[in-house]
Amino acid sequence: MSLDLAIFVISALVAVFGATMMIFQRNPVASVLYLILSLVGQAVLYVQLGAAFVGAVLIIVYSGAILVLFLFVIMMLNLRSSADLGEPSPPVSRFVKYFVSCLIFLELSFIIRESLGAGSTTSAGIVTMADDSFGSVESVATLLFTRYLYPFELTSVLLLSAIVGAVIIARRATEDELPPQPEKAVGPISQKTNEGQE
């Protein structure tokens, strides 16, 4: 009982600490690593909430795939100087931004407190689960392939379009550049397009 609380407090602190450190790091690689730390804390919270499979997927897909993609891009861009990364904004505008975020936090926690406080006797505490199937791979898969079959299938279309879009966007425009060059030596026009592309 108190072990539950201790696990919750520790993992929540880890999640919030990692997120806070992430946004204040100057070095993007350190930022990614702190985000991974935050995700580990969140995954522990997921497991505590009975969503063991989703927590595992969070670690595998997020830390294993998406954040490695971030690291790969950072490595490829080879960012070093502060001119690449940008200077912090002036203190006055930063204060306004902190203030706005604090307002969002207070507003959302107020909503949570009010809405959960109304039915506090029934829904404020976690329902103790009797069945073991809650959050298991089998029950998640059953849900995804029965009730949410169409959204799940549409997800594959979304991923396909994202793949094609990413390839098209990140592609070097060499094939668009090349045709004007061998065509004829018009001179200024083709050179200008080359400079524009690079």
Binding site: A15, V16, A19, T20, M22, I23, S38, Q42, P88, S89, R94, K97, Y98, V100, S101, C102, I104, F105, L108
Partner: peptide, 11 residues
């Protein structure tokens, strides 16, 4: 975490 993310997007 959402509020921290907002701070990150803004600053």
């Amino acid at each position: 975490l959402f509020a921290i993310g907002t701070v990150g997007v803004l600053i």
